[in-house]
Write a protein that binds this DNA or RNA. Structure first.
Lengths: 219, 219
DNA sequence: TGAATCAAGATTGTCGACGATTTTCGCGCG
DNA sequence: CGCGCGAAAATCGTCGACAATCTTGATTCA
C-alpha cells in the first residue's frame, strides 16, 4: 500500500524491446549458429507472449541475423567462410565509398576526434592489448561511416557487420593479424585527415583486400 | 452439402503469399509513397486476418519497402531524390563487383545468352521502344548479377532495386536518356564477353556515374 | 529385415478479442 | 475567435486458443 511498495515492484518498470534483447543474445553467442529459435521457448524465457517473440523474429530475419524456414520455424543464421568472404568483398565497395566521403566532408572538429582515435589505436598496439585493439577497429569503422553522412551505405554496412560479427571476432585473434592491419588502419586515418579521397579509397581497399586473403586461407 | 459444393467453393484454392501480393501492389504504385497501410483495411482488402497482414508488413519493412512508426502503423516508404542518388552510389560498388565476377566466370553458354540479349537491346534501341528498352536494361542488370554468382551482392542489389523502382522508372523516360545509356550498356556487355574484369568494372562505373549526374540534375 | 503407413507429439500459422496508445473532434474558457 | 482540455474514435500491440503443418516413432506387411 505504500508508494515504495508500488515503485519497487520487481516487474518491468521499463521493458526493453524484445527484438534488441534477442539480437544481443545472438551477437553474444548465447544462441549458436543454426540453433533453432522456438517461439514457445523464447516466449517463456523472456516472459513475453508468442506474438511478441514472433514480431522480434521477423524483425531479425529482416536484418539477416535469423533464417525463417516456412512452417519450420526460425534459427540463427550461420555465415560460412565463403559468405564471410563475400561480405568483405561487398564491404570493399561500401567502405571505400564512405572513406571517400569522409575525406571530403571532414570538419576540423571531426579531424581532432579522428586524431584522438589514432592515438588510442597506437596505444593499444603498443601495449599488445588485442581486445582493446579489436574494439577500437570497430570504433574506427563506425566513425568513418558516420563521417561519410551516407545513410544508405551506413545501414547496409551495419547489417553486414552484425551478420559477420562472429568471423570478425575470430579474425581479430588470427596470429599476426594485428601487426599487419595496424599500419593499414593508420594509413586510412591519415588519408582521411589529409582530405585525400583517392588515398582514403586506396588505403581502405588495401586493408579489406588483405582481410579477404586471410579468409581465403581459412576456408 | 454436396461434395461439388465443397470442392467448387470460390475461396482460395491456392493463396499466394500475402507479402508478395502487397509487395507487388507497392511496386505497381497501387499504394502511393507515404500512404498509410492500415492493417484492418488490408485485412479486409485481401481477405486475410490482421495477423497475416502484420506479418507481411514486417517482412516488407525488413526489405525497406515499408516504414513502421512505433504505435503509429506502417506506410509506404518514400525514397527522396537524395536517397536515390545514395542508392546509385552504392550500386556502383556492388555492380562493379558483379561485373568483374561475371567477366571472370563467363561460360560459353552464358556468353551466347549475353550476345542474344545484346541483340535484343540493339533492336529495342533501333525501334525506339523505350518500354522494351527499359525492361531489357533491368533484364541485363539481373543477368549480370546472376553471372557473378555472388549471393551477398545479389541480395543487396535486389533490395535496392525494389526500393528505387519508382526512380528507375522515371529515369528511363528522361529525355535523351536512352541515347546516352545504350552505348554504355553495350560497352558493359562487350567487356564481360571479352572476359576483361577491369574493362567491365570501368564500363559499369561510367554508366552508373552518368546516372548519378542525371539524378543530381533532378533534385 | 526393411520399407511403407499411420498415429501422436511438437511447432508454426491464423484467428478473434481485448487493452494500450495515438489521433481527432467538439466544447468550454479566456 | 483561438487555445487548451477531455472524451470518443481509430488504430496498433498483445494475448490465448485453435487449426494446419511438420517431425518422430511405432506398427504392419511383404
Amino acid at each position: 500500500m505504500t508508494d515504495a511498495a508500488v515503485l519497487s515492484d520487481d516487474e518491468t518498470i521499463e521493458r526493453p524491446d524484445l527484438t534488441q534483447v534477442i539480437r544481443e543474445a545472438i551477437l553474444d553467442a548465447q544462441f549458436a549458429p543454426h540453433q533453432r529459435l522456438i517461439e514457445a521457448d523464447l516466449s517463456e524465457r523472456y516472459g513475453a507472449s508468442r506474438a511478441s517473440v514472433r514480431t522480434a523474429l521477423l524483425n531479425l530475419a529482416g536484418e539477416g541475423l535469423v533464417e525463417r524456414l516456412p512452417n519450420r520455424g526460425a534459427r540463427v543464421r550461420a555465415i560460412t567462410v565463403d559468405e564471410a568472404i563475400e561480405i568483405v568483398e561487398v564491404r570493399i565497395g561500401l567502405e571505400t565509398l564512405c572513406a571517400r566521403k569522409a575525406a571530403q566532408n571532414l570538419s576540423p572538429a571531426d579531424a581532432d576526434e579522428l586524431r584522438a582515435l589514432r592515438a588510442d589505436i597506437e596505444a593499444a598496439i603498443g601495449s599488445g592489448d588485442l581486445m582493446a585493439y579489436s574494439r577500437l577497429n570497430q570504433e574506427l569503422d563506425r566513425r568513418i561511416r558516420d563521417l561519410s553522412h551516407h545513410g544508405t551505405a551506413t545501414q547496409l554496412l551495419e547489417r553486414l557487420r552484425a551478420q559477420s560479427a562472429r568471423h570478425q571476432f575470430r579474425l581479430a585473434f588470427h596470429p599476426g593479424r594485428a601487426a599487419t592491419s595496424a599500419p593499414e588502419h593508420i594509413a586510412i586515418i591519415d588519408a582521411i585527415l589529409a582530405k585525400d579521397p583517392d588515398a582514403a579509397e586506396a588505403a581502405t581497399r588495401a586493408h579489406l583486400s588483405g582481410i579477404v586473403e586471410v579468409l581465403h586461407g581459412m576456408e
